[in-house]
Amino acid sequence: MMKLQLMFAREVCMMYCFISNVIANKDKTAIGSSYNPVRAQSVVQWANDFLDKTIPLTDGSYSQLKFINIQQNKLEFTLVNGNHTLV
């Protein structure tokens, strides 16, 4: 169960931040009636920073994450540079 929670933690953080006041709701990051790419980028950055602090990868950052795979019953994170890392 923990593995599934971890796999979706980034997406859940981003969804929550996008619709809440975790990210400032003003000027360029304001919630509007349509998709706001500036707010979306702020949400992604906040979620990556949060996960880096709370569930750090052994090497790299969540901002460098490309894929999440399950290998031998463990989560394996592939970074954009091709390196593999674990939690």
Results as ranks from 00 to 15, higher is better:
M1E: 03
M1P: 00
M2I: 03
M2Q: 03
L4I: 02
L4N: 03
L4F: 01
Q5M: 04
Q5D: 04
L6C: 01
M7Y: 03
F8T: 08
A9Q: 04
E11P: 00
E11M: 05
C13H: 04
C13I: 03
M14V: 09
M15P: 00
Y16H: 05
C17Y: 07
F18R: 15
F18M: 12
S20L: 04
S20N: 06
S20G: 05
N21L: 03
N21I: 01
N21K: 06
V22S: 08
V22M: 05
V22W: 03
V22I: 12
I23Q: 06
I23R: 06
N25F: 05
N25E: 05
K26P: 00
K26N: 11
D27N: 05
D27A: 08
K28E: 15
T29I: 04
T29G: 03
A30V: 08
A30H: 04
A30W: 01
I31D: 02
I31V: 07
G32E: 08
G32T: 10
G32H: 05
S33W: 04
S33V: 04
Y35C: 03
P37R: 12
P37S: 09
V38F: 09
R39A: 02
A40Q: 13
S42C: 07
V43P: 02
V44A: 11
Q45V: 09
Q45P: 00
Q45D: 13
Q45H: 11
Q45A: 14
W46M: 10
D49Q: 12
F50N: 03
F50D: 00
L51E: 04
L51R: 06
D52C: 09
K53G: 13
T54W: 06
T54N: 13
T54K: 11
T54Q: 11
I55K: 14
I55W: 13
I55A: 13
P56D: 03
P56A: 07
P56T: 02
L57T: 07
L57W: 08
T58N: 12
T58C: 00
D59C: 09
D59I: 06
D59G: 08
G60H: 11
G60D: 10
S61V: 08
S61R: 15
S63C: 11
S63Q: 15
S63E: 13
S63T: 12
S63M: 14
S63I: 12
Q64R: 14
Q64H: 14
L65I: 13
L65Y: 11
K66R: 15
K66E: 15
F67V: 01
I68V: 15
I68W: 14
I68R: 13
N69T: 12
N69V: 06
N69D: 15
N69A: 14
I70F: 11
I70A: 15
I70Q: 15
Q71C: 10
Q71A: 11
Q71K: 15
Q71E: 15
Q72R: 14
N73T: 07
N73I: 00
N73P: 00
K74P: 00
K74M: 13
L75V: 10
L75R: 14
L75Q: 13
E76D: 05
E76C: 12
F77I: 10
F77M: 11
T78I: 13
T78G: 13
T78W: 08
L79M: 11
L79P: 08
L79H: 11
N81R: 10
N81H: 09
G82E: 10
G82V: 07
N83C: 06
N83A: 10
N83H: 13
H84P: 00
H84M: 12
T85R: 12
L86W: 04
V87T: 10
V87Y: 09
